[in-house]
Simulated scan of single mutants.
Amino acid sequence: MRAMVFEGFGGPQVLHPADVPAPLPGPGQVRLRVEAAAVNGWDVKSRAGTTGAPAPTSPVVPGLEVAGVVDALGDGVTGVAPGDRVVGFAVGGGYAELALTKVFARVPDGLAATDAVTLPVAAEAATRVLRLLDVRAGETLLVHGASGSVGALATQLAVRRGARVIGTASARNQDRVAALGATPTTYGAGLVDRVRALAPDGVDAVLDTTGAGVLPDSIALRGGTDRIVTIADDAAADLGVTASYRSERDAGELAEVVDALARGDLTTTVGAVLPLADAARAHALVESGHPGGKVVLTP
């Protein structure tokens, strides 16, 4: 099968097309004919060699998220059949014509694969941190990076719980954050004063998706380190703040978010859809920091 691979660390240019063996589904796995594969920051870091992983000794197919049509089942798989459309976490890479997944959800009729594939990573992170923060109706949640993929989903899920969300974003994304149901504000100098003006009674919980050095301000706003979670700032340990990096993949939670997107109860933003062969361009776009939403590859 055709796939995009890298055989050594480097810039986006190390990604190139190659013929690789088609994967065979193991126990509990399904194989998809890939309709869409999302590009994540982790893909970029893996290709660049900044994750701490050893240098590859064989071609690596990147990609954490895939959506497509089931074409083969591994032992023990039930509830899904060849021809069904699913979206999930790729096993062994998703930038390919065929990919494996073990944690997945059905894609309802009418939901495009390019939209569904934006969900697995962001939905897992958003539901995990909201669970850690125990956000409840009537509380105020501050989300740093509310226009990003994780921040946007966390914002919407918190609003659906009945919480009030204050979301930080760049000046150009203020309207987008407001459309998610949050009260927007810009990040940067003066943030503490701006948030206090919007929430005179204080904030009950803080989610940092940015890693942009916002934890000291978050501590000031909370009056301590409790109910602050970051998914992006390695300074958390030194500051006594909870950092949550370990994925807790759950097919049921993914299905709930996928169904909500299909019903129109949640929204997601696709910044660009590019051919699989343009994976290097997709990585460069993500590295630019201004992709305008999730970047998606289609074989």
Rank of each mutant, 00 (worst) to 15 (best):
Ala232Asn: 05
Ala205His: 01
Ser218Ile: 12
Gly223Val: 02
Ile231Trp: 06
Ala212Asn: 05
Ala220Ile: 06
Asp217Phe: 04
Asp234Arg: 08
Asp208Lys: 07
Ala232Cys: 09
Leu207Ala: 03
Gly224Tyr: 00
Asp233Ile: 09
Pro216Gln: 13
Gly202Ala: 07
Pro200Asn: 06
Asp208Gln: 07
Thr230His: 14
Gly223Asn: 07
Leu198Thr: 01
Ala237Gly: 02
Asp233Pro: 10
Val229Asp: 02
Thr230Asp: 04
Asp233Lys: 10
Leu221Gly: 04
Asp226Leu: 07
Ala205Val: 03
Ile228Met: 07
Asp234Ser: 15
Thr209Leu: 05
Pro216Leu: 03
Pro200Thr: 01
Thr209Tyr: 12
Thr225Asn: 02
Ala237Arg: 15
Gly224Ile: 07
Gly211Gln: 14
Ala237Leu: 10
Val214His: 13
Pro216Ser: 08
Gly202Cys: 04
Ala236Asn: 11
Thr225His: 02
Asp204Met: 02
Ala235Leu: 13
Asp201His: 09
Ile219Trp: 00
Gly211Ile: 02
Val206Ile: 06
Pro200Val: 04
Asp217Trp: 03
Asp233Thr: 14
Val214Phe: 14
Ala235Met: 08
Asp201Glu: 13
Gly202Tyr: 01
Ala199Ile: 00
Ala199Asn: 05
Thr230Glu: 05
Gly223Tyr: 06
Gly213Arg: 04
Ala236Cys: 12
Asp208Glu: 04
Ala232Ile: 03
Val229Lys: 03
Ala199Leu: 01
Thr209Cys: 12
Ala236Glu: 11
Gly224Asp: 07
Ala199Met: 01
Gly213Lys: 07
Thr225Cys: 03
Pro216Gly: 10
Ile219Leu: 00
Val203Asn: 05
Ser218Trp: 13
Thr225Arg: 01
Gly224Arg: 12
Val203Gly: 03
Leu215Asn: 12
Ala237His: 15
Ser218Cys: 11
Val206Gly: 02
Ala232Ser: 13
Asp233Trp: 11
Leu221Asp: 10
Asp233Arg: 08
Pro200Trp: 02
Asp234Pro: 15
